[in-house]
């Protein structure tokens, strides 16, 4: 490029010297044909088309085995009701409105507990995450309480709050605090330090720094915590309703269990599962609404 460049080039690069071929180049080189394996769109697409079929194969086989073993009398209905009678039980429960009422009561408990617990968890996580003093006050206390399995608290809550809705909601709330707290705290602390420096350079006030840099960028982590908490709230709901319940899904299932009505018990279990699915759907929707700026969310 320049005079100096060309002056120093020959000695250093030695490109011009027609020396004999190095020994390494004399040996024959085996080339692999990389184009042999081609994209086979036809085969891939074919597999994709029957993927759902493949995935459904085992569950369908299980269902058939279940129906066959129960209708053939191999398994008595007091042990396991047939799929057909489960469906009939579900139809009856829906027809007289019993299932809807139970579902409303149970979902109400779970939701109330979740909102209270997640609220406390987010608040505690922010206090501990944003202020050093808050961390000292809150973190070790919550870390200590976290080691208590929440189900162990049920007898105590029954003594304190009786047997109505209150002990159940309190139990669910307590169970929900920890995952939300931990993830909120980690989210706030995990906000990229380099972004905080940007805020400092451009003179953001502390309040703006929190509302525009820290909170939005901690939100994905907070939502992960809420997602965990939603799962746990269902678990706590089931546990709380097993102990004593005069209404709700738990009461329905326990009564059926006492009467050895396995068909109704299975209906209850399926409804719990459907609740879990619903909860998952709600979290996905929340993420989509609240995190439009995340590449993974946008693409999915």
């Amino acid at each position: 490029m320049t005079v100096q460049d060309s002056r120093c080039a020959p000695g250093e690069l030695g490109r011009g010297s027609p020396a004999a071929e190095p020994a390494a180049l004399a040996a024959p080189l085996d080339l692999t044909d990389l184009s042999r394996r081609r994209n086979a769109p036809g085969r891939r697409a074919g597999l994709r088309r029957i993927r759902w079929l493949l995935r459904g194969l085992v569950p369908a086989a299980l269902l058939i085995a279940w129906q066959w073993s129960t209708s053939a009398g191999l398994v008595p209905p007091t042990t396991l009701a047939s799929p057909k009678s489960v469906l009939e039980a579900a139809r009856d429960l829906i027809a007289d409105g019993e299932l809807q009422t139970a579902l409303r009561v149970s979902a109400g408990r779970a939701l109330t507990g979740l909102v209270i617990g997640a609220g406390i968890g987010v608040a505690a996580g922010l206090v501990a995450g944003l202020w050093k003093l808050g961390e000292e006050l809150v973190d070790s206390t919550l870390q200590m309480l976290r080691t208590v399995p929440f189900i162990a608290l049920i007898p105590l809550f029954v003594v304190w709050f009786g047997i109505g809705d209150t002990p159940k909601i309190v139990l669910i709330a307590v169970a929900c605090i920890f995952p939300v707290y931990l993830n909120t705290f980690a989210g706030v602390r995990g906000v990229d330090r380099r972004l905080i420096e940007v805020g400092r350079v451009f003179g953001l006030s502390r309040t703006r720094m929190i509302t525009r840099l820290v909170l939005p960028n901690a939100l994905p982590s907070v939502l992960v915590g809420i997602r965990y908490a939603m799962g746990i709230s269902l678990l706590a709901l089931v546990a709380a309703e097993q102990i004593n319940a005069s209404s709700g899904l738990g009461a329905l299932v326990m009564n059926a269990s006492n009467q050895i009505r396995t068909d109704i018990v299975i209906v209850g279990v399926v409804v719990y599962a459907l609740l879990g699915l619903l909860v998952d759907l709600i979290v996905r929707l929340l993420e989509r609404l609240l995190l439009p700026w995340r590449p993974t969310i946008v693409k999915s």
């Binding site: 380099r194 972004l195 420096e197 940007v198 525009r212 840099l213 939005p216 960028n217 939100l219 700026w293």
Partner: peptide
């Protein structure tokens, strides 16, 4: 800065 350091949520 050497990296853009844009705020991803804005």
């Amino acid at each position: 800065f050497q990296e853009p350091r844009l705020v991803p949520s804005e």
